[in-house]
């Protein structure tokens, strides 16, 4: 009893339960297996890949550089284009969606304007609309406007992020005190300046979270670009690798090099987001916890 209370009374002492840690170890292995397979097999050349056996370990030939060169020169360097396209879609969609969500969330939280409750209820209802159900009509609308098969066809619909609005609303409501905003107003700051200089810095963890979530959603998007784009030079990397996968599966012979490109291509394509997540960890974790999921 005495030692239990000391655990909670003082600063949290590290707690180690061995069986639980072993269980965690198994989970870690499970979650790492696909990464390990991709890392190992992207080092192999085509014969090594198809020789069978040894699928979870390196073969005698470790040729990352040769495979990388092949990946980035295949079909006139189309893979690099896909990566750059994905980056463009993720940044444009992510930043745009974040700006709109932050403004709207703040507006909903801090101003009592006409039809506020009704509009916010509609936005919340929109969380339940299947995003993919919007793709078919959006495609037809865009094709009327001549926008299909352009970057706008992917970027514009990604600007919509109702969940971001919800998150920002909760955060602005809880973390930005009205008294502070009123004080700024009394001091003669305009509404826009109050927002930019007082409220925005206080909402930073949530802003980073919404930015990451929307950028990830754009980077991972598959259905929308698949439907909107027909020129493979506009594809994001998800649609591009899906295309290769389809080609490689369709004719199993003679496309052995394409399989190794797909494997290494998968590995390279996941690195940017992994790096982004790990380096920004400090920021988004705070955002998720306060993100009001209570």
């Amino acid at each position: 009893m005495a030692d239990r209370t000391s655990v909670t009374a003082g600063p949290r002492r590290p707690q180690r339960y061995l069986p639980l840690q072993i269980l965690l170890g198994f989970m870690v292995i499970y979650f790492l297996v696909p990464f390990w397979w991709v890392i190992v097999n992207s080092s192999k050349d085509a014969p090594g890949l198809f020789s069978g056996g040894n699928t979870l370990w390196f073969s005698d030939q470790i040729d990352y550089l040769g495979n990388l060169r092949q990946l980035f020169t295949y079909d006139g360097g189309i893979y690099l284009r896909w990566i750059l396209n994905s980056t463009l879609y993720a940044l444009a969609g992510g930043i745009g969606a974040t700006i709109l969500s932050v403004m709207a969330g703040y507006g909903f939280a801090k101003y009592r304007f006409a039809a506020r409750r009704f509009s916010f209820a509609v936005v919340l209802g929109a969380l339940m609309v299947p995003a993919t159900a919007l793709v078919i009509p959006t495609f037809i609308m865009f094709s009327r406007l001549g926008l299909t098969n352009t970057v706008w066809a992917v970027i514009l619909p990604s600007l919509l992020n109702p969940f971001g609005v919800y998150l920002m609303h909760v955060y602005a409501r809880d973390a930005v005190p009205d008294e502070l905003l009123d004080a700024a107003r009394v001091d003669g700051a305009g509404e826009v300046r109050t927002f930019l200089q007082i409220a925005l810095p206080m909402m930073r963890p949530a802003v980073v979270t919404v930015l990451l979530l929307s950028a990830v959603a754009s980077w991972n998007n598959y259905f929308l670009p698949l439907a909107m784009l027909s020129d493979n030079r506009l594809f994001p990397v998800t649609v591009g690798l899906g295309l290769w996968q389809g080609i490689a599966s369709a004719n199993n012979t003679g496309t052995t090099s394409l399989w190794s490109l797909i494997i290494l291509g998968s590995l390279v394509s996941v690195l940017p987001l992994i790096i982004a997540f790990f380096s920004l960890q400090r920021h988004w974790r705070g955002g998720l916890s306060v993100g009001g999921l209570r």
């Binding site: 709109l100 709207a104 909903f108 101003y111 304007f113 009509p137 037809i140």
Partner: peptide, 30 residues
Amino acid sequence: EHLMGWLFVGPFGVVFLAFLIAPLLYALYL
């Protein structure tokens, strides 16, 4: 206050109408 509220919510509102409400109604129509 009404004006400022709509000013902040407006840009999102436009996107919301253009890429959610409009496609939804259009899909229903189609």
